[in-house]
Protein backbone atom coordinates (compact mmCIF):
# COMPACT_ATOMS: atom_id res chain seq x y z
CA UNK A 1 0.00 0.00 0.00
CA UNK A 2 2.32 2.69 -1.23
CA UNK A 3 1.38 6.29 -0.60
CA UNK A 4 0.66 8.45 -3.64
CA UNK A 5 3.37 10.97 -4.63
CA UNK A 6 1.34 14.07 -3.76
CA UNK A 7 0.32 12.64 -0.42
CA UNK A 8 3.96 11.95 0.34
CA UNK A 9 5.01 15.45 -0.61
CA UNK A 10 2.46 17.01 1.70
CA UNK A 11 3.42 14.76 4.60
CA UNK A 12 7.11 15.35 4.11
CA UNK A 13 6.64 19.10 3.90
CA UNK A 14 4.91 19.13 7.28
CA UNK A 15 7.58 16.96 8.86
CA UNK A 16 10.47 18.89 7.32
CA UNK A 17 8.99 22.18 8.43
CA UNK A 18 8.66 20.96 12.01
CA UNK A 19 12.24 19.64 12.28
CA UNK A 20 14.37 21.52 9.77
CA UNK A 21 15.66 24.24 12.05
CA UNK A 22 15.93 22.13 15.17
CA UNK A 23 19.21 20.63 16.22
CA UNK A 24 19.65 16.87 16.29
CA UNK A 25 16.45 16.32 14.42
CA UNK A 26 17.16 13.95 11.52
CA UNK A 27 16.24 10.84 13.49
CA UNK A 28 13.12 12.55 14.80
CA UNK A 29 12.03 13.39 11.27
CA UNK A 30 12.62 9.80 10.17
CA UNK A 31 10.56 8.59 13.14
CA UNK A 32 7.77 10.89 12.00
CA UNK A 33 7.92 9.38 8.51
CA UNK A 34 7.83 5.85 9.85
CA UNK A 35 4.95 6.72 12.18
CA UNK A 36 3.05 7.95 9.18
CA UNK A 37 3.64 5.03 6.81
CA UNK A 38 4.77 2.17 9.00
CA UNK A 39 8.12 2.33 7.19
CA UNK A 40 10.29 4.91 5.46
CA UNK A 41 9.37 4.98 1.74
CA UNK A 42 12.26 5.78 -0.58
CA UNK A 43 10.40 8.65 -2.27
CA UNK A 44 9.68 10.23 1.08
CA UNK A 45 13.29 9.84 2.22
CA UNK A 46 14.55 11.56 -0.93
CA UNK A 47 12.04 14.32 -0.54
CA UNK A 48 12.90 14.80 3.11
CA UNK A 49 16.60 14.99 2.31
CA UNK A 50 15.99 17.79 -0.19
CA UNK A 51 13.82 19.76 2.16
CA UNK A 52 16.06 19.36 5.21
CA UNK A 53 19.28 19.78 3.25
CA UNK A 54 20.59 16.38 4.21
CA UNK A 55 22.30 14.24 1.53
CA UNK A 56 20.38 11.06 0.74
CA UNK A 57 23.47 8.98 1.48
CA UNK A 58 23.47 10.35 4.99
CA UNK A 59 19.79 9.50 5.43
CA UNK A 60 20.35 5.90 4.32
CA UNK A 61 23.46 5.65 6.44
CA UNK A 62 21.23 6.38 9.42
CA UNK A 63 18.22 4.33 8.30
CA UNK A 64 20.29 1.21 7.79
CA UNK A 65 22.16 1.54 11.08
CA UNK A 66 19.16 1.62 13.40
CA UNK A 67 17.06 -1.50 13.87
CA UNK A 68 13.91 0.48 14.46
CA UNK A 69 13.63 1.82 10.93
CA UNK A 70 12.05 -0.25 8.19
CA UNK A 71 12.68 0.28 4.50
CA UNK A 72 9.80 -1.90 3.33
CA UNK A 73 6.14 -1.80 4.14
CA UNK A 74 5.64 -4.19 7.03
CA UNK A 75 2.10 -5.11 6.10
CA UNK A 76 -1.06 -4.27 7.93
CA UNK A 77 -0.48 -6.01 11.21
CA UNK A 78 2.85 -6.05 12.98
CA UNK A 79 3.46 -8.85 15.47
CA UNK A 80 6.54 -8.40 17.65
CA UNK A 81 7.90 -11.05 19.97
CA UNK A 82 10.16 -9.69 22.69
CA UNK A 83 13.51 -11.44 22.97
CA UNK A 84 14.84 -9.65 26.03
CA UNK A 85 16.60 -11.84 28.58
CA UNK A 86 13.58 -12.29 30.86
CA UNK A 87 11.38 -13.26 27.91
CA UNK A 88 14.09 -15.53 26.58
CA UNK A 89 14.27 -17.39 29.89
CA UNK A 90 10.49 -17.63 30.04
CA UNK A 91 10.09 -19.28 26.65
CA UNK A 92 10.19 -16.53 24.03
CA UNK A 93 12.05 -18.74 21.50
CA UNK A 94 9.18 -21.28 21.59
CA UNK A 95 6.66 -18.46 21.39
CA UNK A 96 8.42 -17.06 18.34
CA UNK A 97 8.36 -20.38 16.54
CA UNK A 98 4.67 -20.82 17.38
CA UNK A 99 3.94 -17.36 16.00
CA UNK A 100 6.00 -18.14 12.95
CA UNK A 101 4.05 -21.36 12.35
CA UNK A 102 0.70 -19.67 12.92
CA UNK A 103 1.45 -16.89 10.46
CA UNK A 104 3.39 -19.01 8.00
CA UNK A 105 6.27 -16.52 7.87
CA UNK A 106 9.76 -16.40 9.34
CA UNK A 107 10.79 -13.61 11.73
CA UNK A 108 11.56 -10.49 9.71
CA UNK A 109 9.18 -11.49 6.92
CA UNK A 110 5.87 -10.09 5.71
CA UNK A 111 3.16 -12.45 4.53
CA UNK A 112 2.56 -12.51 0.78
CA UNK A 113 -0.85 -10.93 1.08
CA UNK A 114 0.72 -8.07 3.01
CA UNK A 115 -1.42 -8.76 6.06
CA UNK A 116 1.14 -9.72 8.71
CA UNK A 117 4.69 -8.87 9.61
CA UNK A 118 6.53 -10.89 12.25
CA UNK A 119 9.55 -9.47 14.00
CA UNK A 120 11.78 -9.96 17.01
CA UNK A 121 12.28 -6.98 19.30
CA UNK A 122 14.89 -6.40 21.98
CA UNK A 123 13.21 -5.84 25.30
CA UNK A 124 10.14 -3.67 25.49
CA UNK A 125 10.86 -3.16 29.19
CA UNK A 126 8.03 -5.24 30.56
CA UNK A 127 10.22 -7.98 31.97
CA UNK A 128 8.11 -8.59 35.07
CA UNK A 129 5.35 -9.98 32.88
CA UNK A 130 7.54 -12.08 30.58
CA UNK A 131 7.12 -13.39 28.00
CA UNK A 132 5.57 -10.47 26.20
CA UNK A 133 4.60 -9.72 22.61
CA UNK A 134 2.97 -6.80 20.90
CA UNK A 135 0.32 -6.81 18.20
CA UNK A 136 0.11 -3.46 16.39
CA UNK A 137 1.74 -1.82 19.38
CA UNK A 138 -0.62 -3.31 21.96
CA UNK A 139 1.36 -5.10 24.66
CA UNK A 140 0.33 -8.61 25.66
CA UNK A 141 1.59 -9.91 28.99
CA UNK A 142 2.52 -13.50 29.94
CA UNK A 143 1.78 -14.61 26.41
CA UNK A 144 1.32 -18.17 25.22
CA UNK A 145 1.07 -19.39 21.65
CA UNK A 146 -2.71 -19.67 22.15
CA UNK A 147 -3.22 -16.22 23.66
CA UNK A 148 -1.14 -14.64 20.93
CA UNK A 149 -3.15 -16.42 18.25
CA UNK A 150 -6.35 -15.20 19.90
CA UNK A 151 -5.10 -11.62 19.61
CA UNK A 152 -4.19 -11.74 15.95
CA UNK A 153 -6.54 -9.50 14.01
CA UNK A 154 -8.38 -11.33 11.25
CA UNK A 155 -6.92 -10.65 7.78
CA UNK A 156 -9.73 -8.54 6.38
CA UNK A 157 -9.79 -6.00 9.21
CA UNK A 158 -8.14 -2.93 7.80
CA UNK A 159 -6.39 -0.12 9.56
CA UNK A 160 -4.51 2.81 8.15
CA UNK A 161 -1.29 0.92 7.74
CA UNK A 162 0.37 2.30 10.79
CA UNK A 163 2.63 0.14 12.90
Amino acid sequence: MSPTPTQTEDDVAVIAKRWKDKRGSLIMALHALQDRYGYVPREAAMNLGEQMNVPLARIYEVLTFYNYFRLKSPGKHVVSVCMGTACYLKGAPQLLSQASDALGIAPGETSEDGEYHLQVVRCVGCCGLAPVATVNGELLAKVTGESLAAHLPSPSVSNDGKA
Binding site: G24, V62, N67, Y68
Partner: peptide, 20 residues
Protein backbone atom coordinates in the same frame (compact mmCIF):
# COMPACT_ATOMS: atom_id res chain seq x y z
CA UNK B 1 15.96 4.04 17.20
CA UNK B 2 16.84 0.61 18.47
CA UNK B 3 20.59 0.49 18.91
CA UNK B 4 21.98 -0.87 22.18
CA UNK B 5 25.35 0.79 21.57
CA UNK B 6 23.71 4.23 21.86
CA UNK B 7 23.67 3.81 25.62
CA UNK B 8 27.43 4.46 25.36
CA UNK B 9 27.88 8.19 25.72
CA UNK B 10 29.90 8.99 22.61
CA UNK B 11 27.57 6.82 20.48
CA UNK B 12 24.61 8.58 22.05
CA UNK B 13 26.09 11.91 21.07
CA UNK B 14 26.55 10.74 17.48
CA UNK B 15 22.93 9.60 17.43
CA UNK B 16 21.69 12.91 18.82
CA UNK B 17 23.64 14.66 16.10
CA UNK B 18 21.68 12.65 13.56
CA UNK B 19 24.43 10.21 12.65
CA UNK B 20 25.02 6.47 12.94
Amino acid sequence: AGAFVCGEETALIASLEGQR
